[in-house]
Design a protein around this nucleic acid. Structure first.
Lengths: 160, 160
DNA sequence: TATTGTTATACTCTATAACTATA
DNA sequence: TATAGTTATAGAGTATAACAATA
């Protein structure tokens, strides 16, 4: 036993790396007063504005009570706005405001820089390989990486 | 924008996958009444018995107050034992008891099975590549994967 | 003076349940 | 009856500080 057996386990390796990465991610976003999940929320809206809180919950994998607080804070800061949902009067349609779009772009740039640092030791092909392998494992585990409606089965599966 | 932009980010992809993986890991260990960190603790002792709580803290990346509780429970279950530390009377030397060694082996087998499931969609080379890439990124980030003393620099670096 | 282990306290996060208004 | 959003409450988990024994 010359080297640490614990981190021969992919599960442990993944756990330790992710812990560090999420910590860095949180630190990078802190000056923008954004939590990672709030960044995720803004990013989802960038892709498809006006989703209900329930839809956002499923994509972000948080409970709906938590979503209330996330949207509350973003709405107070006028980054996001609750409007009437067309077609379901129980639901709110969450819309991105200009300041929210701008902040998301800013955050995304910081994230890109962080990822450049984290993956700086790998070349382009290795980065592509790593992402592709993580995506495959995720999909095999049944995680929705493309939570858009209407893509139930046989989706185009970009880059696999 | 046809596919979800959030999970093009390695940081988000890693986070979501790890969340799922750690959840599965926790479920798999539950019948043994072991938390992932307790498994980690037992595994560290398997590699090198009699470490101080402080040493275990650094390897597992938990605070020393948390370690007290982890060892407490394992000691109550007679999986582990606190003995006098030779050379430092402030410290405790944590030793693995036979039942602890047996339980660790059992847990490790369950973990191996989980990993086979999780990585079942990849072939041998792909698994090796994934682990190797994760290890490189971890090392580049300064994470100690081989926390053994005396291996400060120029370690053999298995599989890199 | 610094460090190991320990305990107590406060704070954050999360999970559960209940409620309302709609469907 | 079931669902979207909200609120309140309790529990788990975490971080901070303080303490005794030893270095």
């Amino acid at each position: 036993m010359t080297s640490q057996p614990l981190f021969h386990h992919p599960v442990c390796l993944l756990g330790r790396l992710d812990f560090h990465v999420q910590e860095q991610f949180t630190k990078v976003l802190a000056p923008l007063h954004l939590q990672p999940r709030q960044f995720g929320l803004l990013s989802l809206l960038t892709g498809s504005d006006g989703q209900s809180q329930q839809q956002l919950c499923e994509s972000l994998d948080v409970h709906r009570n938590v979503m209330v607080g996330l949207v509350d804070e973003l709405e107070q800061r006028e980054l996001v706005e609750r409007r009437r949902h067309p077609g379901d009067r129980r639901a709110h349609a969450v819309h991105l405001l200009p300041a929210g779009r701008a902040l998301q772009a800013q955050a995304e740039q910081l994230l890109d820089e962080l990822e450049s640092e984290l993956l700086g030791g790998l070349d382009r092909d290795e980065v592509r390989t790593l992402i592709s392998l993580l995506q495959r494992v995720s999909r095999d585990a049944g995680l929705d990486l493309i939570p858009h409606p209407g893509l139930t089965a046989g989706a185009p599966a970009a880059g696999r």
